[in-house]
């Protein structure tokens, strides 16, 4: 599998999946922790793609040091919303803000920016066992406080296939924000921003219901190495991790 170009293969997988009816796609992500080099390329690509403000980072990377000199271990583990099939955030947020979160048939837990208020955010955050999954857009800009706010922060994002302009004083400002597997890119035939940029070639994405897909093959062929974070909580996350040390990797989750 080494000579193969994972991005090209997944890109082909994606075109195949898009030919299917939307409700029969099953998006999932896999991260090979052994290959993550902790570069934060995914983090920044995501900020750029989705025009994220200060304080909002859909995708982060945990950098955990263990051991004593010179026997040191460093675990580099990316985290984003796990798009759980049994997502505790959905009922919690919808209870305070009806219609704010929706579990889509393709697996994505989608935010309705018009309805996902601060209360929805707080409820979702409290319900979600994963730290670093849900964020609140408090309306700040990175270039505020400099001689002038810059255009790259004022351009629209295309999340969920719509144009969102933060300067309009409307959503997504003052809304809950989180990873959506870049469905706006995916549905236009482009892999998620964190996946295409992943410098370590550690991040995989595709349609789990397609056995031919690289992601399905990867998970199938590495059963002993696959783990999901907080599986025991019954959340059924759609982000899978591959590691040589599943126990260690699991125990190190904050």
């Amino acid at each position: 599998m080494e000579a193969e170009n994972a991005l090209v293969r997944m890109h082909q997988d994606l075109q195949r999946a898009l030919k299917k009816p939307a409700e029969r796609r099953s998006w999932a992500m896999a991260v090979d922790v052994r290959k993550c080099i902790g570069c934060y390329g995914c983090t920044v690509a995501c900020i750029a793609e989705n025009v994220l403000p200060p304080g909002v980072m859909y995708r982060t990377v945990l950098d955990i040091e263990l051991g004593k000199y010179p026997n040191v271990v460093r675990i580099l583990k990316p985290m984003n919303c796990q798009q759980c099939d049994n997502a505790p955030c959905v009922p919690a947020a919808n209870a305070v803000a009806p219609g704010s979160l929706e579990k889509r048939p393709d697996g994505v837990v989608a935010v309705n920016y018009e309805r996902a208020t601060k209360e929805a955010f707080e409820a979702a955050r409290a319900a979600c066992p994963y730290k670093r999954a849900v964020y609140f857009d408090d309306g700040r800009f990175y270039t505020d406080g400099t001689p002038a706010r810059q255009a790259y922060e004022m351009r629209p994002s295309f999340e969920y296939g719509k144009e969102w302009t933060r300067t309009a004083g409307k959503p997504p400002v003052n809304a809950l924000r989180k990873c959506h597997f870049c469905v706006h890119r995916v549905e236009n035939g482009e892999l998620p921003a964190c996946v295409t940029t992943c410098v370590g070639e550690a991040t995989y994405f595709g349609d789990l219901s397609d056995p031919q897909s690289l992601i399905a093959q990867l998970l199938r062929e590495n059963r002993d190495k696959v783990m999901r974070v907080y599986e025991s909580k019954g959340t059924q996350p759609r982000v899978y991790y591959l590691t040589d040390t599943p126990v260690l990797c699991k125990s190190q989750h904050p």
Binding site: L7, V8, H11, C39, Y40, G41, T43, V44, A45, I47, A48, N188, G189, E190, L191, T196, T197, C198, V199, E201
Partner: peptide, 13 residues
């Protein structure tokens, strides 16, 4: 047009 290559965080920024 829909196929991207990889880029490091500095490249992205």
């Amino acid at each position: 047009a829909t196929l991207d290559g990889r880029l490091c965080p500095k490249g992205q920024a």
